[in-house]
């Protein structure tokens, strides 16, 4: 297994600081969800964890070692990443796309081993993309396309998966489908999943561990009932709400109020 953590991370873009002295340990084998208002730094944090951004200070550690001291290929064998708006090369088929996920396991000599083939078939199977395997990615619907990208990450066969808003631009049905798929990957294949989600209630439903980010710092973290309370939501999102228990799933259910009305 692999653990990922941030140690006193400070970084930003150009001169603007986004994350300030942020430390975070993410539980192994669990689903962690980063939440926070727009611009709070949660996507930046995910990018830093995925080594897409170099920290100004501090470090991201993989199993206790600085992630930048390991080759990017070695990291790619334990950590897969689905960015927010992935773009597929023109003309590529779903199967070819999923095959790309095998890259960190391949060498000049071995570019299509039996292991590669098995993992690709398995990834297509798990994401229910087998029947779509020969279609070109640009012809897929939004939900199918997202499943294809997840299949690519699954084929990469890493204990750790990072996803930046995997449900954005999907309708509710397909959001649920993607989250159910990720949950099954966590429960059945034991993958540690770290993702950014916008929908607080879906985050509560699927997360084992919620990390609330505010102003580039970890504001609160823990199990959903501990983090998502009326006071905390007000602090994190500057939003009035009531939090009740979801009658079916028994996770916190946040009912947002406008600024004007009160109940």
């Amino acid at each position: 297994m692999t653990t990922i953590s941030a140690r006193r991370l400070t970084l930003g873009y150009q001169r603007r600081t986004i994350l300030r002295d942020l430390s975070l340990d993410l539980p192994e084998g669990r689903i962690s969800v980063l939440v926070g208002s727009n611009g709070c730094g949660k996507s930046t944090l995910l990018k830093a964890l995925a080594r897409l951004l170099d920290p100004w200070q501090g470090q991201v550690s993989l199993d206790g070692h600085d992630i930048r001291r390991r080759s990017t290929r070695a990291v790619a064998r334990v950590l897969s990443l689905l960015p927010q708006h992935p773009v597929a090369p023109e003309g590529i088929s779903v199967r070819q796309l999923v095959c790309l996920g095998r890259h960190p396991h391949q060498s000049w000599l071995s570019q299509w081993s039996e292991e590669d083939e098995r993992r690709v078939d398995d990834a297509l199977e798990r994401t229910a993309m087998r029947d779509q395997a020969q279609r070109r990615v640009e012809t897929l619907s939004g939900g199918q396309r997202q499943r294809a990208w997840i299949a690519m990450a699954v084929a990469q066969d890493t204990p750790l998966m990072l996803l930046d808003e995997p449900t954005s631009f999907l309708d509710l049905t397909h959001q649920m489908e993607v989250l159910e798929l990720l949950k099954s990957l966590n429960r059945e294949a034991g993958k540690t999943i770290v993702m950014v989600l916008h929908d607080l209630n879906l985050a509560c439903r699927y997360a084992d561990h919620i990390v609330a980010v505010r102003d580039g710092r970890v504001h609160a973290q823990g199990a959903p009932p501990a983090v998502i309370t009326r006071e905390r939501v007000r602090e994190i999102f500057q939003l009035e709400c009531r939090v009740i228990e979801d009658p079916f799933f028994h996770t916190p259910l946040c009912i947002p109020f406008g600024k004007q009305r009160d109940a």
Binding site: R51, A88, Q156
Partner: peptide, 11 residues
């Protein structure tokens, strides 16, 4: 042909 984030993601 992949965007940078995806390419880095697969090493």
């Amino acid at each position: 042909a992949l965007d940078d984030a995806l390419a880095v993601g697969i090493g």
